[in-house]
Design a protein around this nucleic acid. Structure first.
Lengths: 331, 331
DNA sequence: GCAACCATTGACAACGTTGACTATGGCAGG
DNA sequence: CCTGCCATAGTCAACGTTGTCAATGGTTGC
């Protein structure tokens, strides 16, 4: 691999002049520049960013640590948002999935630090309150889709309460009166907020709160959704709409509704949460749902990191991003 | 950030001795080593891998270029396999998604080269024959889930023909006689091979080939699957099993079958392809399907790259990995 | 008692680049 | 004609490591 010195020899200039050319320094005459560029092309020279990083003490590298990436479809959007934001500013991402293994998380952070990343995004696939991996505070960091209990680290999370509110309100605007909620497993961070939004919407619009219409699931999976929906349909009167706190629950609810010969949305409206594409877009009828802003969170996290690098300090903002409604055919 | 020299001063040794300690060189006395380790801990010293990489001329970095990552759920498994293989050997991955943009792909490869990655994996989300991005041959490279037309670059792809064969044979072993195929859109690389496997299985087991039972889809989506299945059910006699060339097609086929009041698998067996978890595991009944070996391809690609680094040369092997059967309830 | 060896440690250069500074030569202004 | 400036180019050190080689001092073997 050619170095700057070999290019310099080939172009009969000092290696410093080559450096100027590849850094677009204006203090090079046009003829010299052309000669150098010629030499660069014939030698197939490529600047060595490792050497440059060492000299300039900037790596233009950001770490992205994910608790895990494989079991939910959310990682890619988080990553894509982060990558788009980084790419635009000439930064690259070093991505590590630590598969919920604390040792691997710690190792990942240490390696990233040794590689002199200029910042770290720590992302979880479920909205959570986390204990940050050790040493992550040695670089500017942002938590995406999770936050530190004490709010000491900048974070970006979805506005679950508002999402729950808007989902419910959307059903109300369609004229629904008896709106059921099949919520997540009670332990989930999002469960409480989505419930709060649901309750606030009913109250705001003067609808009664009927405890019988509120159900929890054990694990938020379709089977669970099927059973809860089945129970709800036994109520008299049955609900005329159901807010499922995730799309997998909605998937199960669909089956329960169809098994009774009821039609969606004519007899009962269904709204989901998460916008898990493969489910929501492919269900028949396609599912209206609240999207989780994974792309936007990844994007925001990196932008915040880059802002911090510009400013020399990171502000521990706690940002919440809206969950937009994705209108399809189920309401 | 402390450097090796500051540690040396703190421990009253030369910086070379510190270097020996952090590299586990045995030629350091126990007392000196202890003193150095003390200094390292009190200063919070971390070796600077950029400097080390520059000196040793090894980056322990691999590039991973994906054509795109967001629209299919396959990227994460490819990435995870690659990362696991890399991590085990102390390598890190630099992942770039280029969103099917040739300019971005070229830019990604160039940046990776400038960062002195020791090898590059190029991965596509659909099994394809590709034109490699320019300059990728400047580093050892492996194609995952795709291959170069001329076979000049090492590649790892799924054995689609064998997958089609085994899917069909599995249905035959269940005693099915009238097995339909709803294939992918005809342009897909995998379509021809899965069809070939289907035909070979029928022939091998002495079953007749009935052209009416073989359908193509336009885009391989559920709606398409619904329509084709509906047509198939109009045949007399109707099929007693259907091999859907992907799980989304199977999802649509389920709806068509259920709409006629038929039961899966009692009246008709369904087998899918791709093992797209959110669909296959959550359909009712859960879908038996052939898994695409994305994790294994990612793993193999990186292992092959690392083997090449050990050997000093990369062999342009064209490996095909099996698509294992995932048994669930639909056959 | 001396040579030879071993264990331990250090000095120095090098990796490929950029930053700070210096040198050259031509030209404008007095 | 001289001074001073500007455009252009070059020299050298430094970034934080590791590789090569040399130095030191104590111990072993004869």
């Amino acid at each position: 691999m050619a170095t700057i010195k070999q290019v310099a020899d080939a172009a009969h200039v000092s290696f410093k002049t080559v450096s100027r050319v590849i850094n677009d320094d204006p203090n090079v005459s046009a003829t010299t520049r052309a000669r150098v560029i010629d030499a660069i092309n014939t030698l197939g020279y490529r600047p060595n960013l490792i050497a440059r990083n060492m000299r300039t003490r900037r790596s233009h590298l950001l770490g992205f640590v994910a608790d895990e990436i494989a079991t939910t479809p959310f990682a890619v959007n988080l990553i894509k948002g982060a990558q788009d934001a980084a790419w635009k500013r000439g930064f690259m991402l070093m991505i590590v999935s630590c598969d919920n293994d604390a040792a691997r998380a710690e190792g990942a952070v240490e390696t990233l630090l040794e590689r002199k990343v200029e910042g770290v995004v720590y992302a979880t696939m479920r909205h959570e309150v986390i204990v940050p991996p050790p040493h992550i505070d040695e670089a500017p960091s942002v938590f995406a889709n999770c936050r530190a209990e004490d709010g000491s680290v900048a974070s970006v999370t979805p506005n679950e309460e508002r999402g729950g509110f808007e989902a419910t309100e959307t059903l109300i605007h369609r004229g629904r009166q008896r709106i059921a909620l099949i919520n997540l497993e009670p332990g989930a961070t999002a469960a409480q907020a989505r419930l709060a939004g649901y309750l606030r919407a009913l109250t705001t619009h003067g609808l009664p709160i009927d405890e019988r219409r509120i159900r929890n699931t054990d694990d938020g999976q379709p089977d669970d959704g099927f059973r809860r929906m089945d129970e709800l349909l036994d109520l008299t009167p049955p609900p005329d709409a159901v807010f499922c706190a995730n799309d997998r629950i909605a998937m199960g609810a669909y089956d329960a509704i169809k098994a009774r010969g009821l039609r969606i949305p004519q007899d009962i409206s269904v709204i989901g949460f998460d916008n898990q594409e493969v489910i929501a877009a492919y269900l028949r009828p396609a599912l209206t749902t609240m999207a989780l802003p994974h792309y936007e969170m990844g994007y925001w996290a990196v932008e915040h990191l880059l802002r911090a690098l510009d400013n020399g300090a990171i502000s521990p903002e706690q940002v919440m991003l809206p969950c937009p409604l994705v209108r399809r055919a189920s309401i």
